[in-house]
């Protein structure tokens, strides 16, 4: 694997956290799901990243063998039970309009194919960039007349997983130009801004130190092509905003709110850093 020579640490980051270089995972492994579906887990960095890295890598590469194995078979992947549960929810009528997701969108396997790969996405009617979770809640509120789901709740992450798995294996391809550009610029600004008492930016860990250890954790590039992700840590599906919140909190900063415009911008930018990697959701991480 090729890596940029960008491992120079600032004194502040060094003082705050110790990065080490213990290799623990098999970074040469390939991810094939169910023995036949090959995922693109390393590929050329998108053009907008060409100054900072040559290759982008899925977070799967940075996990230990046992964790990697869990994602290689849909039965072993605990995230898939939530896909099953969401399939029931997809067909269940809810709200004042007597509709289910299926009432408008029929068979999820056909209608949702490719959707996850292009989200977050500019919504012309709303005049803003929307995440998949926002779109799900928009449907619930305005089409079904149903209660919104909690942004990071179990019903939401399961539905995100069901929709995302229909795009599994397709390359992430979020648009960063046109009307989405200003949101993308905002997200990029956030990515490189140091926050919190530890004064760490996303880039300090996930651009300058991926592959290194932060205490006992093997740092990835922070790619979100696998979200929602089943984490061994909390034994449930987690969406990108829940993970961002954890990361920001770990810098000892006040976090943004999941679903907020700030996190939408960050999600668009971080997603764009993975343009070209396969949609892996639901992935398995530690």
């Amino acid at each position: 694997m090729t890596k940029p020579m960008g491992n120079t640490l600032t004194a502040i980051a060094l003082a705050a956290v110790a990065f080490g270089t213990v290799a623990t995972a098999d970074e040469s492994a390939d991810l094939v799901i169910n023995g036949d579906q090959e995922m693109t887990i390393r590929t050329a960095a998108p053009a907008h990243l060409s100054d900072v890295m040559d290759e982008i890598n899925s977070g799967w590469l940075y996990r230990k063998d046992e964790t990697q194995l869990l994602q290689m078979d849909d039965f072993d992947n605990p995230g898939m039970i939530f896909v099953d549960l969401a399939q029931d929810a997809w067909n269940a009528v809810d709200g004042s309009e007597d509709k289910s997701c299926a009432s408008c969108h029929d068979n999820v396997e056909e209608t949702m194919k490719g959707v996850r790969a292009v989200y977050p996405k500019w919504n012309e009617t709303a005049g803003e960039v929307r995440t998949l979770a926002h779109q799900i809640n928009d449907c619930r509120e305005n089409q079904m007349g149903a209660e919104k789901w909690k942004y990071t709740g179990g019903k939401m992450t399961a539905m995100e997983a069901l929709i995302s798995v229909q795009s599994r294996g397709m390359p992430v391809d979020v648009a960063i130009d046109g009307p989405a550009q200003s949101t993308w610029e905002q997200g990029k600004e956030m990515y490189y801004s140091r926050t919190g008492q530890l004064e760490l930016s996303c880039a300090n860990c996930h651009e300058e130190n991926y592959g290194n250890m932060i205490r006992a954790d093997h740092l990835s590039q922070g790619q979100i092509n696998g979200f929602p992700v089943y984490r061994l840590k909390n034994s449930k599906l987690n969406n990108a905003h829940a993970r961002f919140k954890g990361c920001v909190r770990d810098t000892r900063a006040e976090t943004y709110k999941p679903g907020s415009a700030d996190f939408v911008a960050l999600e668009l930018y971080v997603a764009s850093r993975g343009n070209g990697l396969s949609v892996e959701a639901p992935s398995v991480r530690n």
């Binding site: 956290v17 250890m213 932060i214 205490r215 006992a216 954790d217 740092l219 984490r231 840590k233 987690n238 993970r243 954890g246 990361c247 909190r249 770990d250 530690n286």
Partner: peptide
């Protein structure tokens, strides 16, 4: 059992 760097 390792304690990761990132509670997340």
């Amino acid at each position: 059992v390792t304690i990761g760097g990132c509670g997340g």
